[in-house]
Protein backbone atom coordinates (compact mmCIF):
# COMPACT_ATOMS: atom_id res chain seq x y z
CA UNK A 1 0.00 0.00 0.00
CA UNK A 2 1.31 3.40 -0.92
CA UNK A 3 1.72 6.32 1.42
CA UNK A 4 -0.55 8.35 -0.85
CA UNK A 5 -3.39 6.79 -2.79
CA UNK A 6 -5.42 8.73 -5.29
CA UNK A 7 -8.45 6.96 -6.73
CA UNK A 8 -10.81 8.00 -9.50
CA UNK A 9 -10.09 11.71 -9.20
CA UNK A 10 -12.23 13.94 -11.43
CA UNK A 11 -12.16 17.70 -11.68
CA UNK A 12 -14.00 19.81 -14.20
CA UNK A 13 -13.63 23.57 -14.75
CA UNK A 14 -16.70 24.48 -16.77
CA UNK A 15 -16.31 22.60 -20.04
CA UNK A 16 -12.74 21.59 -19.38
CA UNK A 17 -12.04 18.19 -17.92
CA UNK A 18 -8.93 19.05 -15.94
CA UNK A 19 -8.64 15.64 -14.32
CA UNK A 20 -10.34 12.52 -15.65
CA UNK A 21 -10.34 9.43 -13.48
CA UNK A 22 -6.80 9.84 -12.20
CA UNK A 23 -5.42 6.96 -10.16
CA UNK A 24 -2.05 7.34 -8.54
CA UNK A 25 -0.15 5.54 -5.86
CA UNK A 26 2.97 6.99 -4.31
CA UNK A 27 5.07 4.34 -2.57
CA UNK A 28 6.82 5.14 0.66
CA UNK A 29 10.45 6.29 0.39
CA UNK A 30 10.32 6.76 -3.36
CA UNK A 31 10.54 9.79 -5.56
CA UNK A 32 7.53 9.88 -7.79
CA UNK A 33 7.63 12.32 -10.67
CA UNK A 34 4.56 13.58 -12.48
CA UNK A 35 5.30 14.99 -15.89
CA UNK A 36 3.24 16.09 -18.80
CA UNK A 37 2.83 18.90 -21.30
CA UNK A 38 1.33 22.26 -20.32
CA UNK A 39 -2.31 22.02 -19.33
CA UNK A 40 -2.07 18.33 -18.58
CA UNK A 41 -3.60 18.79 -15.13
CA UNK A 42 -0.43 18.44 -13.06
CA UNK A 43 -1.07 21.53 -10.97
CA UNK A 44 -4.76 20.72 -10.57
CA UNK A 45 -3.80 17.32 -9.24
CA UNK A 46 -1.35 18.86 -6.81
CA UNK A 47 -3.90 21.42 -5.65
CA UNK A 48 -6.38 18.63 -4.94
CA UNK A 49 -3.78 16.89 -2.79
CA UNK A 50 -3.05 19.89 -0.58
CA UNK A 51 -6.60 21.08 0.05
CA UNK A 52 -6.59 24.06 -2.27
CA UNK A 53 -9.06 22.53 -4.72
CA UNK A 54 -11.93 20.15 -4.07
CA UNK A 55 -12.26 17.49 -6.79
CA UNK A 56 -15.70 16.64 -8.14
CA UNK A 57 -15.28 12.99 -7.30
CA UNK A 58 -12.68 10.49 -6.18
CA UNK A 59 -10.70 9.86 -3.03
CA UNK A 60 -7.30 10.87 -1.76
CA UNK A 61 -5.96 8.83 1.11
CA UNK A 62 -2.75 9.67 2.94
CA UNK A 63 -1.48 6.92 5.20
CA UNK A 64 -4.99 5.51 5.26
CA UNK A 65 -6.59 8.82 6.22
CA UNK A 66 -8.98 10.73 3.97
CA UNK A 67 -7.46 14.03 2.92
CA UNK A 68 -10.29 15.46 0.85
CA UNK A 69 -12.22 18.22 2.56
CA UNK A 70 -9.37 19.01 4.95
CA UNK A 71 -7.96 22.53 5.08
CA UNK A 72 -4.41 23.15 3.84
CA UNK A 73 -3.08 23.57 7.39
CA UNK A 74 -4.69 20.31 8.49
CA UNK A 75 -3.16 18.45 5.58
CA UNK A 76 0.21 19.95 6.37
CA UNK A 77 -0.13 18.84 10.00
CA UNK A 78 -0.75 15.28 8.70
CA UNK A 79 2.74 15.40 7.21
CA UNK A 80 2.35 16.66 3.65
CA UNK A 81 4.49 19.66 2.87
CA UNK A 82 4.43 21.63 -0.35
CA UNK A 83 7.03 23.67 -2.18
CA UNK A 84 5.57 26.15 -4.63
CA UNK A 85 6.41 26.95 -8.21
CA UNK A 86 7.11 30.56 -7.31
CA UNK A 87 8.59 30.50 -3.82
CA UNK A 88 6.06 31.36 -1.13
CA UNK A 89 7.99 32.75 1.80
CA UNK A 90 7.43 35.31 4.52
CA UNK A 91 9.02 38.18 2.64
CA UNK A 92 8.81 40.75 5.47
CA UNK A 93 10.57 38.51 7.93
CA UNK A 94 14.15 37.45 8.36
CA UNK A 95 15.48 34.19 6.97
CA UNK A 96 15.76 32.75 10.45
CA UNK A 97 12.19 33.74 11.33
CA UNK A 98 10.99 32.10 8.14
CA UNK A 99 12.36 28.80 9.36
CA UNK A 100 11.28 29.36 12.96
CA UNK A 101 7.64 29.57 11.93
CA UNK A 102 7.42 25.98 10.60
CA UNK A 103 9.42 24.84 13.64
CA UNK A 104 6.79 26.31 15.94
CA UNK A 105 4.02 24.90 13.75
CA UNK A 106 5.57 21.48 14.13
CA UNK A 107 5.83 21.67 17.89
CA UNK A 108 2.74 23.66 18.82
CA UNK A 109 0.24 22.59 16.18
CA UNK A 110 -1.95 24.75 14.01
CA UNK A 111 -2.83 27.24 16.75
CA UNK A 112 -1.36 27.92 20.11
CA UNK A 113 -1.13 31.20 21.97
CA UNK A 114 2.33 31.68 23.33
CA UNK A 115 2.02 35.38 23.85
CA UNK A 116 4.31 35.83 26.84
CA UNK A 117 7.17 33.51 26.09
CA UNK A 118 10.13 35.07 24.39
CA UNK A 119 11.34 33.66 21.09
CA UNK A 120 14.87 34.20 22.30
CA UNK A 121 14.40 31.67 25.09
CA UNK A 122 13.29 28.90 22.69
CA UNK A 123 16.85 27.63 22.36
CA UNK A 124 15.93 24.22 20.94
CA UNK A 125 13.75 25.64 18.21
CA UNK A 126 16.33 28.24 17.23
CA UNK A 127 19.14 25.70 16.99
CA UNK A 128 16.88 23.40 14.98
CA UNK A 129 16.20 26.23 12.53
CA UNK A 130 19.85 27.25 12.34
CA UNK A 131 20.91 23.68 11.68
CA UNK A 132 18.41 23.44 8.84
CA UNK A 133 19.70 26.68 7.33
CA UNK A 134 23.23 25.35 7.55
CA UNK A 135 22.14 22.22 5.73
CA UNK A 136 20.81 24.22 2.78
CA UNK A 137 23.79 26.53 2.88
CA UNK A 138 22.04 29.68 4.07
CA UNK A 139 23.45 30.00 7.56
CA UNK A 140 25.30 33.19 6.66
CA UNK A 141 22.10 34.95 5.67
CA UNK A 142 19.98 34.31 8.76
CA UNK A 143 19.44 38.00 9.53
CA UNK A 144 18.58 39.07 5.99
CA UNK A 145 15.02 39.91 5.07
CA UNK A 146 13.64 36.98 3.10
CA UNK A 147 12.14 39.32 0.51
CA UNK A 148 15.58 40.65 -0.39
CA UNK A 149 17.04 37.24 -1.25
CA UNK A 150 17.87 36.16 -4.78
CA UNK A 151 15.44 33.81 -6.46
CA UNK A 152 17.61 30.78 -5.95
CA UNK A 153 18.02 31.59 -2.28
CA UNK A 154 14.28 32.04 -1.90
CA UNK A 155 13.81 28.52 -3.25
CA UNK A 156 16.47 27.18 -0.94
CA UNK A 157 14.76 28.93 1.95
CA UNK A 158 11.37 27.52 1.03
CA UNK A 159 12.90 24.09 0.82
CA UNK A 160 14.40 24.56 4.28
CA UNK A 161 11.00 25.63 5.61
CA UNK A 162 9.45 22.44 4.27
CA UNK A 163 12.26 20.13 5.33
CA UNK A 164 12.50 21.41 8.85
CA UNK A 165 8.97 20.11 9.38
CA UNK A 166 10.26 16.61 8.61
CA UNK A 167 7.32 15.86 6.36
CA UNK A 168 6.33 12.34 5.47
CA UNK A 169 5.55 13.43 1.94
CA UNK A 170 7.16 16.36 0.19
CA UNK A 171 5.31 17.78 -2.80
CA UNK A 172 7.54 19.75 -5.11
CA UNK A 173 5.96 21.94 -7.76
CA UNK A 174 8.67 22.62 -10.35
CA UNK A 175 11.39 23.14 -7.77
CA UNK A 176 13.93 24.25 -10.36
CA UNK A 177 11.75 26.49 -12.54
CA UNK A 178 13.71 29.53 -13.62
CA UNK A 179 16.98 28.36 -12.12
CA UNK A 180 20.33 28.45 -13.80
CA UNK A 181 21.97 25.14 -14.74
CA UNK A 182 24.31 25.39 -11.78
CA UNK A 183 21.49 26.16 -9.35
CA UNK A 184 19.44 23.32 -10.80
CA UNK A 185 22.29 20.91 -10.24
CA UNK A 186 22.68 22.21 -6.69
CA UNK A 187 19.00 21.62 -6.06
CA UNK A 188 19.20 18.10 -7.49
CA UNK A 189 22.16 17.45 -5.23
CA UNK A 190 20.28 18.83 -2.24
CA UNK A 191 17.20 16.74 -2.95
CA UNK A 192 19.29 13.60 -3.45
CA UNK A 193 21.08 14.23 -0.21
CA UNK A 194 17.80 14.74 1.60
CA UNK A 195 16.47 11.50 0.24
CA UNK A 196 19.38 9.49 1.47
CA UNK A 197 19.73 11.25 4.82
CA UNK A 198 16.07 11.66 5.73
CA UNK A 199 14.27 9.07 3.69
CA UNK A 200 11.45 11.44 2.76
CA UNK A 201 8.88 10.37 0.19
CA UNK A 202 8.70 12.89 -2.63
CA UNK A 203 6.23 13.67 -5.35
CA UNK A 204 7.67 16.05 -7.89
CA UNK A 205 6.09 17.95 -10.75
CA UNK A 206 8.73 19.06 -13.18
CA UNK A 207 9.30 20.19 -16.74
CA UNK A 208 13.04 19.79 -16.70
CA UNK A 209 13.72 16.20 -17.84
CA UNK A 210 17.23 16.41 -16.50
CA UNK A 211 15.81 16.86 -13.01
CA UNK A 212 13.16 14.19 -13.48
CA UNK A 213 15.57 11.54 -14.68
CA UNK A 214 18.15 12.35 -12.01
CA UNK A 215 15.69 11.95 -9.17
CA UNK A 216 12.63 9.89 -10.02
CA UNK A 217 12.09 6.23 -9.19
CA UNK A 218 8.72 6.19 -10.87
CA UNK A 219 7.32 8.52 -13.49
CA UNK A 220 3.67 9.18 -14.23
CA UNK A 221 2.90 10.91 -17.48
CA UNK A 222 -0.23 13.01 -17.49
CA UNK A 223 -1.82 14.41 -20.66
CA UNK A 224 -5.16 16.17 -21.00
CA UNK A 225 -6.19 15.22 -17.49
CA UNK A 226 -5.60 11.52 -17.93
CA UNK A 227 -2.77 9.23 -17.00
CA UNK A 228 -0.91 8.13 -20.09
CA UNK A 229 1.71 5.82 -18.68
CA UNK A 230 3.32 5.06 -15.39
CA UNK A 231 6.65 3.31 -15.33
CA UNK A 232 10.26 3.43 -14.25
CA UNK A 233 12.37 6.14 -15.95
CA UNK A 234 14.21 3.77 -18.29
CA UNK A 235 10.94 2.67 -19.88
CA UNK A 236 9.49 6.16 -20.08
CA UNK A 237 12.42 7.55 -22.04
CA UNK A 238 11.63 5.87 -25.32
CA UNK A 239 7.90 5.35 -24.84
CA UNK A 240 6.02 6.17 -28.07
CA UNK A 241 2.91 7.51 -26.28
CA UNK A 242 5.02 9.94 -24.28
CA UNK A 243 6.78 11.19 -27.39
CA UNK A 244 3.43 11.72 -28.98
CA UNK A 245 2.02 13.65 -26.04
CA UNK A 246 4.96 16.01 -25.98
CA UNK A 247 5.25 16.32 -29.79
CA UNK A 248 8.77 17.48 -29.39
CA UNK A 249 7.73 19.78 -26.54
CA UNK A 250 10.77 18.47 -24.69
CA UNK A 251 13.36 15.95 -25.62
CA UNK A 252 12.20 12.90 -23.68
Amino acid sequence: MGILEVKGLNKRFGGLQALGDVNLEVQESTCHAIIGPNGAGKSTLLNCLVGKLMPDSGTVMFQGKDVLGCKPHEINQMGISRVFQTPEIFADQTVLENVLIPCFAGRDGSFRMRAFESIGSEVDIISQAEEMLREVGMHKKTDMLAGSLSRGDKRRLEMAMSLVQQPKLLLLDEPTAGMSRADTNNTIGLLKEIRTSRNITMAIIEHDMHVVFSLADVITVLAQGKILVEDIPENIKGHPKVREAYLGDAEV
Binding site: V50, K71, P72, H73, N76, S81, R82, F84, E88, I89, F90, A91, D92, Q93, E97, L100, I101, P102, F104, A105, D108, M113, R114, A115, F116, E117, S118, I119, E122, M161, Q165
Partner: peptide, 20 residues
Amino acid sequence: SPFGLMLRAIKSNQTRMSYT
Protein backbone atom coordinates in the same frame (compact mmCIF):
# COMPACT_ATOMS: atom_id res chain seq x y z
CA SER B 1 6.76 36.04 21.49
CA PRO B 2 6.11 33.14 19.13
CA PHE B 3 2.53 34.41 19.00
CA GLY B 4 3.76 37.80 17.77
CA LEU B 5 5.85 36.03 15.15
CA MET B 6 2.73 34.26 13.88
CA LEU B 7 0.81 37.54 13.75
CA ARG B 8 3.55 39.04 11.57
CA ALA B 9 3.39 35.93 9.42
CA ILE B 10 -0.29 36.70 8.75
CA LYS B 11 0.66 40.09 7.39
CA SER B 12 3.53 38.66 5.41
CA ASN B 13 1.97 35.67 3.64
CA GLN B 14 -1.23 33.93 4.68
CA THR B 15 -0.93 31.30 1.93
CA ARG B 16 2.47 30.20 3.14
CA MET B 17 1.13 30.17 6.65
CA SER B 18 -1.66 27.69 5.87
CA TYR B 19 0.72 25.48 3.90
CA THR B 20 3.03 25.54 6.90
